[in-house]
Nucleic acid binder design. Structure first.
Length: 399
DNA sequence: TCTGGGGTCCTAGGACCC
DNA sequence: TCTGGGGTCCTAGGACCC
């Protein structure tokens, strides 16, 4: 049985979704999604016109403004991304027995063992998928086909935009030979720099290098991984997403914060959003993680195990506060303001039926929470907030 | 005006148990 | 009184991906 995997990647996804929902952006050639010009964010996605100016995803907005000052900057709406992503997912599921989205804007299909159905090539199938995605979501995509996941992914990248690239079995080594190492998945900025310091830039160099020499350069373990990738070998099976392993919310302040009160207010809000999502998904958390980023961008995390797994706001908030207090004190001692605050829930398990022996207090708290969730399900998250948050909102300066 | 937000996976050291 | 090693859980940090 031959293994054939297809990777579908949407072109300039965030930009195109924004165009779809804001028709006035339709003819804006220089469009950058991620945040307004003055925001403390990074570029999520840039139109091909803006990319010609050197704008790339992940780049600070401020830098994008300098490179492309006449561009239009928009923030984008997560809900619209999710909606478009679902439309694409449905198309993919129609075309293969096993299909899975691995991000909002990409997914894999497994055509392994369909040699009788598609004996020679999957190009015609890919063309059909492209057209169906376009018809269903209004978005263009690029498609890569290969004998493993890594090759399919690199091929879709190579095909961009709006292209299809098929790498047949046996050709993968030659296909990756012309690429820089940084183009291989798993080799990010840090590894790229480290490898470059040892003179390793291109895949072809690794292919040509005798193993002992490579081991001498980067060590046995990394040499093995590098060789495997440089030979074009990669994952052969698709795994469908399991349940979430963590749920988190974090926010970067518009200006660094030094007030304990403000931190606590935001901690309440973030925790309540995390807790809400946990309940929504029928999960409880066994531990929580607090994240702080200082003004100088150093980032710390503090984690603690919960006595009882929970998805109740207050039962997550209390230990979160216990973590925040000394961490904030330490930041103060070092003269650091807080740039980012985040809270995450981990060690998630499916929530069970309520404990028969639970205290009256906890029972009441759980029942109130259920009522709040019901209101929120109907009117949205902001329909219910704790009195403290509402009060504070009123005297807050206009956004 | 430097550097988002939501994830996954890996490593490494210490505690603790057998 | 000294001396193990393996296994597992926990925390913190870091690389990477989209």
């Amino acid at each position: 049985m031959s293994i054939r995997i297809m990777h579908v990647d949407l072109d300039a996804f965030f930009v195109e979704v924004c165009r779809k929902h804001q028709p006035e952006l339709q003819d804006v050639d220089l469009l950058i999604v991620g945040g307004r010009r003055d925001s403390r964010g990074v570029v999520q996605s840039a139109s091909y016109g803006a990319r010609a100016f050197g704008v790339r995803s992940g780049m600070p907005i401020a830098q994008a403004v300098r490179l492309c000052p006449t561009a239009t900057f928009v923030r984008g709406e997560f809900a619209t991304y999710r909606e478009a992503s679902h439309q694409v997912q449905e198309v993919l599921e129609r075309h293969a027995p096993l299909a899975t989205m691995t991000g909002l804007d990409e997914g894999y299909l497994d055509f392994s063992g369909t040699d009788l159905l598609h004996p020679v090539s999957l190009l015609d199938v890919a063309e059909q998928i492209h057209d169906d995605v376009r018809a269903s979501s209004g978005l263009h995509c690029s498609i890569g086909i290969g004998p493993n996941r890594m090759i399919a992914k690199i091929a879709s990248d190579y095909a961009k935009p709006r292209g299809i690239c098929e790498v047949r079995d046996g050709w993968e080594r030659g296909f990756v030979a012309g690429l820089p190492l940084a183009a291989l998945p798993g080799i990010g900025p840090k590894s790229t720099r480290r490898l470059a310091e040892r003179g390793l830039i291109d895949v072809a160099q690794v292919q040509a290098m005798p193993m002992p020499e490579l081991v001498a350069l980067v060590g046995r373990e990394e040499a093995a991984v590098l060789t495997r990738r440089a030979e074009g070998r990669g994952g052969l099976v698709l795994r469908v997403h399991g349940p979430a392993k963590s749920v988190s919310r974090e926010t970067t302040f518009r200006r660094d914060v030094s007030s304990a009160e403000e931190l606590d207010r935001v901690l309440m809000l973030l925790t309540s959003r995390v807790a809400g999502q946990l309940r929504d998904e029928g999960l409880v958390a066994g531990a929580i993680v607090l994240k702080l980023r200082h003004g100088d961008f150093t980032t710390i995390t503090r984690q603690t195990t919960l006595e009882v797994s929970t998805a109740l706001d207050l039962e997550l908030l209390a230990p979160a506060r216990v973590l925040l207090k000394p961490a904030f004190a330490e930041a103060r001692r070092r003269g650091q303001r807080i740039r980012l605050l985040g809270i995450g829930a981990t060690r998630l398990v499916a929530s069970e039926a309520p404990d028969l022996f639970e205290t009256e207090e906890r029972k009441r708290s759980r029942e109130i929470t259920t009522a709040v969730d019901a209101v929120r399900a109907k009117y949205g998250f902001d329909a219910m907030k704790s009195g403290r948050l509402v009060k504070r909102r009123k005297d807050a300066p206009p956004e």
